[in-house]
Amino acid sequence: SKDTIRINGIDIDVKDLHEEWKRLVEEALKRGDEELAIELLERALKE
Protein backbone atom coordinates (compact mmCIF):
# COMPACT_ATOMS: atom_id res chain seq x y z
CA SER A 1 0.00 0.00 0.00
CA LYS A 2 1.22 3.49 -0.82
CA ASP A 3 1.84 6.34 1.60
CA THR A 4 -0.13 8.84 -0.48
CA ILE A 5 -3.49 8.80 -2.19
CA ARG A 6 -4.19 11.23 -5.02
CA ILE A 7 -7.54 13.00 -4.95
CA ASN A 8 -8.39 15.82 -7.35
CA GLY A 9 -4.72 15.99 -8.33
CA ILE A 10 -3.66 16.47 -4.71
CA ASP A 11 -1.45 13.89 -3.01
CA ILE A 12 -2.71 13.24 0.51
CA ASP A 13 -0.40 11.65 3.07
CA VAL A 14 -2.12 8.54 4.39
CA LYS A 15 0.76 6.64 5.94
CA ASP A 16 -0.70 7.14 9.43
CA LEU A 17 -4.14 5.94 8.37
CA HIS A 18 -5.39 2.54 9.39
CA GLU A 19 -5.14 0.03 6.51
CA GLU A 20 -8.91 -0.44 6.53
CA TRP A 21 -9.54 3.28 5.95
CA LYS A 22 -6.92 3.36 3.22
CA ARG A 23 -8.60 0.45 1.49
CA LEU A 24 -12.04 2.10 1.66
CA VAL A 25 -10.70 5.34 0.22
CA GLU A 26 -8.91 3.49 -2.59
CA GLU A 27 -12.10 1.55 -3.40
CA ALA A 28 -14.10 4.78 -3.62
CA LEU A 29 -11.50 6.27 -5.96
CA LYS A 30 -11.52 3.15 -8.15
CA ARG A 31 -15.25 3.69 -8.59
CA GLY A 32 -14.53 7.32 -9.47
CA ASP A 33 -16.34 8.60 -6.38
CA GLU A 34 -13.97 11.33 -5.21
CA GLU A 35 -16.59 12.91 -2.96
CA LEU A 36 -16.94 9.70 -0.97
CA ALA A 37 -13.17 9.27 -0.86
CA ILE A 38 -12.78 12.74 0.65
CA GLU A 39 -15.55 12.10 3.16
CA LEU A 40 -13.93 8.82 4.24
CA LEU A 41 -10.54 10.50 4.57
CA GLU A 42 -11.96 13.26 6.75
CA ARG A 43 -13.61 10.68 8.99
CA ALA A 44 -10.45 8.62 9.17
CA LEU A 45 -8.34 11.63 10.11
CA LYS A 46 -10.70 12.49 12.98
CA GLU A 47 -10.14 9.09 14.61
Score class of each variant (00 low, 15 high):
1 S>W: 10
1 S>H: 10
1 S>P: 11
1 S>Y: 10
1 S>G: 12
1 S>A: 11
1 S>I: 13
1 S>F: 11
1 S>L: 14
1 S>T: 13
1 S>Q: 11
1 S>E: 12
2 K>Q: 14
2 K>L: 14
2 K>G: 14
2 K>Y: 15
2 K>E: 11
2 K>W: 15
2 K>M: 13
2 K>S: 14
2 K>N: 13
2 K>D: 10
2 K>R: 12
2 K>I: 13
2 K>P: 15
3 D>N: 10
3 D>L: 03
3 D>T: 09
3 D>H: 09
3 D>F: 01
3 D>E: 10
3 D>V: 10
3 D>C: 11
3 D>G: 06
4 T>M: 09
4 T>S: 08
4 T>V: 13
4 T>K: 06
4 T>A: 05
4 T>E: 04
4 T>G: 03
4 T>F: 13
4 T>D: 03
4 T>W: 07
4 T>I: 14
4 T>Q: 06
4 T>R: 05
5 I>P: 02
5 I>R: 02
5 I>T: 02
5 I>S: 01
5 I>G: 02
5 I>D: 01
5 I>W: 04
5 I>K: 02
5 I>Y: 04
5 I>E: 01
5 I>H: 03
6 R>A: 06
6 R>H: 10
6 R>C: 04
6 R>M: 10
6 R>K: 11
6 R>V: 10
7 I>V: 11
7 I>N: 01
7 I>Y: 03
7 I>Q: 02
7 I>K: 01
7 I>C: 04
7 I>T: 01
7 I>D: 01
8 N>C: 08
8 N>K: 09
8 N>M: 08
8 N>A: 09
8 N>G: 12
8 N>E: 04
8 N>F: 08
9 G>M: 04
9 G>W: 04
9 G>A: 03
9 G>P: 01
9 G>K: 03
9 G>S: 05
9 G>I: 03
9 G>V: 02
9 G>C: 05
10 I>K: 12
10 I>C: 08
10 I>E: 09
10 I>M: 12
10 I>Y: 11
10 I>R: 12
10 I>L: 11
10 I>N: 07
10 I>W: 07
10 I>D: 04
11 D>M: 07
11 D>A: 08
11 D>L: 08
11 D>Q: 06
11 D>P: 05
11 D>I: 08
11 D>R: 04
11 D>S: 07
12 I>F: 15
12 I>H: 13
12 I>N: 02
12 I>W: 15
12 I>G: 01
12 I>Y: 15
12 I>A: 02
12 I>C: 05
12 I>T: 04
12 I>D: 00
12 I>E: 01
13 D>G: 05
13 D>S: 12
13 D>M: 09
13 D>K: 05
13 D>Q: 07
13 D>T: 07
13 D>R: 05
13 D>W: 12
13 D>F: 09
13 D>N: 14
13 D>E: 07
13 D>V: 10
14 V>A: 05
14 V>I: 15
14 V>C: 03
14 V>W: 11
14 V>R: 02
14 V>G: 03
14 V>F: 08
14 V>S: 03
14 V>Y: 07
14 V>E: 02
15 K>C: 03
15 K>L: 06
15 K>F: 09
15 K>G: 13
15 K>T: 14
15 K>S: 15
15 K>Y: 11
15 K>W: 08
15 K>P: 04
15 K>D: 05
15 K>A: 12
15 K>H: 11
16 D>P: 05
16 D>K: 10
16 D>F: 13
16 D>T: 10
16 D>L: 11
16 D>E: 10
16 D>G: 14
16 D>Q: 11
17 L>Y: 04
17 L>K: 01
17 L>H: 01
17 L>W: 06
17 L>S: 01
17 L>T: 01
18 H>F: 07
18 H>A: 15
18 H>Q: 10
18 H>S: 15
18 H>E: 09
18 H>I: 09
18 H>T: 14
18 H>P: 14
18 H>D: 12
19 E>T: 09
19 E>R: 09
19 E>Q: 12
19 E>G: 10
19 E>A: 12
19 E>I: 12
19 E>S: 11
19 E>M: 10
19 E>K: 10
20 E>C: 06
20 E>K: 15
20 E>F: 15
20 E>P: 14
20 E>R: 15
20 E>L: 13
20 E>Q: 13
20 E>A: 14
21 W>V: 15
21 W>E: 03
21 W>P: 02
21 W>M: 08
21 W>F: 06
22 K>G: 04
22 K>D: 01
22 K>N: 02
22 K>H: 04
22 K>W: 09
22 K>S: 05
22 K>M: 10
22 K>C: 03
22 K>I: 15
22 K>T: 06
22 K>Y: 08
23 R>H: 06
23 R>Y: 07
23 R>K: 10
23 R>N: 06
23 R>V: 07
23 R>M: 09
23 R>L: 07
23 R>Q: 08
23 R>W: 06
24 L>F: 04
24 L>I: 06
24 L>K: 11
24 L>C: 07
24 L>A: 11
25 V>N: 00
25 V>A: 02
25 V>Q: 00
25 V>I: 15
25 V>Y: 03
25 V>H: 00
25 V>S: 00
25 V>F: 05
25 V>K: 00
25 V>T: 01
26 E>T: 14
26 E>P: 00
26 E>M: 15
26 E>F: 15
26 E>V: 15
26 E>L: 15
26 E>C: 09
26 E>K: 15
27 E>A: 13
27 E>P: 00
27 E>C: 14
27 E>F: 05
27 E>L: 14
27 E>W: 09
27 E>V: 04
27 E>D: 11
27 E>I: 07
28 A>G: 00
28 A>H: 02
28 A>P: 00
28 A>L: 07
28 A>M: 05
28 A>D: 00
28 A>C: 04
29 L>G: 00
29 L>A: 03
29 L>E: 00
29 L>C: 03
29 L>Y: 05
29 L>V: 07
29 L>H: 01
29 L>W: 09
29 L>F: 05
30 K>E: 13
30 K>H: 12
30 K>F: 14
30 K>W: 14
30 K>Y: 14
30 K>N: 11
30 K>G: 11
30 K>A: 14
30 K>D: 10
30 K>I: 12
31 R>T: 09
31 R>F: 09
31 R>G: 08
31 R>P: 00
31 R>L: 09
31 R>D: 08
31 R>K: 10
31 R>V: 09
31 R>M: 13
32 G>E: 03
32 G>C: 04
32 G>L: 04
32 G>K: 04
32 G>T: 01
32 G>I: 01
32 G>H: 05
32 G>Y: 03
32 G>A: 03
32 G>D: 04
32 G>R: 04
32 G>M: 04
33 D>F: 08
33 D>M: 10
33 D>I: 03
33 D>W: 06
33 D>S: 05
33 D>L: 10
33 D>K: 06
33 D>A: 05
33 D>E: 09
34 E>P: 12
34 E>D: 11
34 E>W: 11
34 E>L: 12
34 E>T: 14
34 E>M: 13
34 E>Q: 12
34 E>I: 12
34 E>Y: 11
35 E>D: 12
35 E>A: 14
35 E>Q: 14
35 E>N: 14
35 E>V: 14
35 E>C: 11
35 E>Y: 11
35 E>F: 13
35 E>H: 12
36 L>P: 00
36 L>S: 07
36 L>T: 08
36 L>C: 08
36 L>I: 05
36 L>R: 08
36 L>W: 08
36 L>N: 05
36 L>E: 07
36 L>G: 11
37 A>M: 03
37 A>T: 02
37 A>W: 02
37 A>F: 02
37 A>E: 00
37 A>N: 00
37 A>G: 02
37 A>P: 00
37 A>D: 00
37 A>L: 05
38 I>T: 08
38 I>H: 08
38 I>R: 12
38 I>P: 00
38 I>F: 13
38 I>G: 07
38 I>M: 15
38 I>Q: 12
38 I>A: 11
38 I>K: 13
38 I>C: 12
39 E>D: 07
39 E>I: 14
39 E>V: 14
39 E>Q: 14
39 E>T: 13
39 E>S: 14
39 E>W: 15
39 E>R: 15
39 E>K: 15
39 E>L: 15
39 E>F: 14
39 E>P: 00
40 L>A: 01
40 L>I: 13
40 L>N: 00
40 L>Q: 01
40 L>M: 07
40 L>P: 00
40 L>C: 02
40 L>H: 02
40 L>W: 05
41 L>A: 04
41 L>H: 01
41 L>N: 00
41 L>T: 03
41 L>I: 13
41 L>Y: 09
41 L>P: 00
41 L>R: 01
41 L>C: 02
41 L>F: 05
42 E>P: 00
42 E>T: 12
42 E>C: 15
42 E>V: 10
42 E>Y: 15
42 E>L: 15
42 E>I: 12
42 E>N: 14
42 E>D: 10
42 E>Q: 13
43 R>V: 06
43 R>N: 06
43 R>C: 07
43 R>I: 09
43 R>P: 00
43 R>Q: 12
43 R>A: 07
43 R>M: 12
43 R>F: 09
43 R>D: 03
44 A>V: 04
44 A>N: 02
44 A>T: 01
44 A>M: 10
44 A>W: 13
44 A>K: 02
44 A>Q: 03
44 A>F: 13
45 L>F: 13
45 L>V: 08
45 L>E: 05
45 L>R: 14
45 L>Q: 10
45 L>T: 06
45 L>W: 12
45 L>S: 07
45 L>P: 03
45 L>Y: 10
45 L>G: 06
46 K>Y: 09
46 K>T: 09
46 K>I: 09
46 K>H: 09
46 K>G: 10
46 K>D: 07
46 K>L: 14
46 K>A: 13
46 K>E: 09
47 E>A: 11
47 E>D: 11
47 E>Y: 06
47 E>V: 09
47 E>R: 04
47 E>W: 06
47 E>C: 14
47 E>P: 06
47 E>N: 10
47 E>H: 09
47 E>G: 10
